[in-house]
Computed example of a mutant assay.
Amino acid sequence: MIELAAPWILLLLPLPLLVHWLVPAYKRRMAALRLPFFQRYVQAAGIAPAAGAQVMSRSRILSALALLCWCLLVVALARPERVSAPIHWQTSARDLILAVDISGSMDEKDFAASDDETLQRLAGVKRVIAGFLGDREGERLALIVFGTQAFVQSPLTTDLDTLQALLARTEVGMAGPHTALGDAIGLAIRQFDASDVSQRLLILLSDGADTGSRMSPINAASIAADRDVQIITIAIGDPQGNGENRVDTDTLEAIADTTGGTSFLATDEQALRQVYDRIDELAPRQIADHSYRERQSLAAWPMGVALVLVLLAWLWRSVSLGRRRLS
């Protein structure tokens, strides 16, 4: 399909006719031959002399070529384009960050797998997250790992294969032995600052109480709520445990409630999978529709034809003048 990017330019098409009708003809004084006995000549011819101007005749062919060239140039200024069929695609209007606890307590081997195998907590979490990421095509995700310190393992990206590879290389203790929940939330907020989508979701997985944050987890959650960040917390481990191995479910629930999110407890692989299945129900993914048309400019074609016509007119006029001189 061919379209004009600036169709209003076509209003210039009748401009030569308006100039021809409204603008007076150009006048120029020319030398004349003075004849003796002029009155006798005109009397013999039977005409009466009068002052006037002679309008030079124009070749109809040259006039037609000039009008055609003008039309072609106006069409070129209107920017004709070949437009392809619309190309549609969808992207997610939601950005999602996974914050995974890799403190020393995640080394406990008490995570029940679906095949009756007991896994290390982090290994079980990795297995479930891998399946979750496989269903996130079209979404932007980021990965934050935290222990004593919180680190961005992967910024917001649609390259989920790379994110999967980075998660697979994550090991317990890489970020220190303690748990800094507040720092992980604060780091996630800074990552969302680079996002311009309206739906921002942080999934926080932890198996221990906050023991090393520079910022209180509740204060961090309040800031997240002000930035329209929703937090879903997932407790991994035994709430009845002792020391750092005990999950502080009260804090995790308070974090989720502050941001309008939900808190879950996952003690085995099956429960964790059910949690991830419910995430889309609790925070449905918003889809943004996009369309694109490829446009190829065709303005060079009418300009090229106009140039060829001008060259042909010049050649025809030169040949005509040459013949007149010879005759």
Score class of each variant (00 low, 15 high):
Met1Thr: 05
Met1Pro: 05
Ile2Gly: 00
Ala5Ser: 11
Ala6Pro: 02
Ile9Lys: 03
Leu10Met: 13
Pro14Asn: 09
Val19Pro: 00
Leu33Arg: 14
Pro36Trp: 10
Phe38Pro: 15
Gln39Ser: 10
Val42Gln: 07
Val42Asp: 03
Gln43Asn: 11
Ala45Asn: 10
Ile47Phe: 09
Pro49His: 06
Ala50Leu: 06
Ala64Trp: 13
Leu72Ile: 05
His88Pro: 05
Thr91Gly: 03
Leu96Gln: 10
Ser103Pro: 01
Phe111Thr: 03
Asp116Val: 02
Ala123Asn: 04
Arg127Phe: 06
Leu143Gln: 07
Leu143Tyr: 10
Val145Ile: 15
Ala150Met: 05
Val152Lys: 04
Leu156Trp: 11
Leu160Val: 07
Leu163Pro: 12
Leu181Glu: 06
Asp183Pro: 08
Ala184Pro: 02
Gly186Gln: 12
Ile189Gln: 15
Val197Trp: 02
Asp207Gly: 15
Ser213Asp: 03
Ser213Gly: 03
Arg214Pro: 00
Arg214Asn: 13
Met215Ser: 08
Ile218Lys: 03
Ile218Cys: 01
Ala220Arg: 09
Ser222Arg: 13
Gln230Ile: 09
Ile232Asp: 06
Glu244Asn: 14
Val247Glu: 15
Ala256Asp: 01
Thr262His: 03
Leu265Gln: 15
Glu269Phe: 02
Ala271Gly: 13
Glu281Ala: 14
Pro284Asp: 10
Glu294Tyr: 07
Ser297Met: 03
Val305Glu: 02
Val308Tyr: 10
Leu309Thr: 08
Val319Cys: 13
Arg324Leu: 15
Arg325Ser: 08
